[in-house]
Simulated scan of single mutants.
Amino acid sequence: MSKTLESAASLPVTSPPDVAPSKKKQPYPFWLGGVAATIAASITHPLDLTKVRMQATGDKGMIQSIKKTVRTAGVRGLFDGITGTWLRQMSYSLCRFWAYDESKKIVGAGRDAPAWKLALAGSMAGGIAGLVGNPGELIMVRLQSDFAKPPEKRLNYKNSIDGLTRMVKEEGWPSLGRGVGPNVFRAILMNASQLASYDFCKAELLKTGYFEDNINVHVSASFIAGTVATTVCSPADVIKSRIMSASGKEGNSTFQMIKTSFRNEGPMFMFKGWLPAWSRLQPTTILIFVTLEQLKNLVDYTREWRGLQ
């Protein structure tokens, strides 16, 4: 017995094998949201163009407005102002998705965060993005609404860069901040409703057990988010479009614009263009989030292939 104990004591003591610590998941590139939004907005641009023209010029009916555009400028006219859309998405949307992710860290909004924390993070992101993206928003609206005006009132910008250059030259640097109040307010509403609604609905749908984290839940959550965002943002969107579409010489203050619109059209003017806005925002919201999720999957696949995860 003693020999057995001695032989056992003489055996080398081995420590348990080292367990390699799991690598922390790397953050996704900050520009993914901007790319996803640019792709989506390019596809739905004709609907966005129609919405802006109805809000800014008083066209009645979505179909009538589309027919008017095709009649006066051809099918190609449905893509008037596309460079403004690109500029806007790669400034405003790029900033809002980046700021939303950073804001969620600040407020502690994790995977199963309550709706109010997500809305707070979305509001913070919207305020930042609305300010940064105002020049792009302004040029996009002017490019889209220009051909709906009488020839003598058109600005005739060649593209978004030409528009920015001419605005600064003809109206001064302060013109780039035109309509920034309604734009920031709308951006806060949009991100608090769209981004927060998507994250919240996605989490709740996954909890039901009927969904997996795939395209089905992405489409369902984004459909709800698109409807919520359209309704919440409609009043600010109408006011923003009317202020931004006017040149400096025609300009009125936000209060004067609201007062005049109430007097001439009644309170329902705030929901004018809701149908084309929903028709545009709904597929755009679905396309943005589905594209973004696929881009994230592509990044994950690339990282795995390179052995980074």
Score class of each variant (00 low, 15 high):
121 A>K: 02
123 S>A: 15
123 S>K: 06
123 S>F: 08
124 M>S: 08
124 M>R: 02
126 G>F: 13
126 G>S: 01
127 G>T: 08
127 G>Q: 08
128 I>N: 01
128 I>M: 09
130 G>H: 06
131 L>F: 15
131 L>H: 05
131 L>N: 12
131 L>C: 13
132 V>S: 10
132 V>I: 15
135 P>G: 10
135 P>W: 05
137 E>F: 08
137 E>L: 04
137 E>W: 02
138 L>E: 05
140 M>S: 04
141 V>Y: 01
142 R>G: 01
142 R>H: 03
143 L>T: 00
144 Q>I: 01
144 Q>H: 03
145 S>M: 07
147 F>V: 10
148 A>F: 04
149 K>P: 05
149 K>R: 15
149 K>G: 11
149 K>W: 04
150 P>R: 15
152 E>A: 15
154 R>N: 11
154 R>T: 11
156 N>A: 12
156 N>M: 13
156 N>P: 03
157 Y>F: 15
157 Y>I: 14
158 K>R: 14
158 K>L: 13
159 N>C: 10
159 N>S: 13
159 N>Y: 14
159 N>G: 13
160 S>I: 07
162 D>W: 06
162 D>V: 09
162 D>R: 09
163 G>Q: 10
163 G>W: 06
163 G>E: 11
164 L>R: 10
164 L>M: 07
164 L>C: 05
165 T>R: 13
166 R>V: 11
168 V>P: 08
168 V>A: 10
169 K>M: 06
171 E>T: 12
172 G>I: 02
173 W>Q: 03
176 L>W: 05
176 L>H: 05
176 L>P: 05
177 G>L: 10
178 R>I: 01
179 G>C: 09
180 V>N: 02
181 G>I: 14
181 G>A: 11
181 G>E: 02
182 P>R: 04
183 N>G: 03
183 N>R: 02
184 V>Y: 00
184 V>S: 00
187 A>R: 00
188 I>G: 03
188 I>Y: 00
188 I>C: 06
189 L>F: 02
189 L>R: 05
190 M>Y: 06
190 M>I: 09
190 M>D: 01
193 S>D: 08
194 Q>I: 10
195 L>N: 09
196 A>V: 13
196 A>R: 08
196 A>Y: 08
197 S>V: 13
197 S>G: 15
198 Y>C: 03
198 Y>A: 07
200 F>V: 15
200 F>R: 08
200 F>K: 13
202 K>N: 14
203 A>S: 14
204 E>T: 12
204 E>L: 11
204 E>H: 06
204 E>W: 06
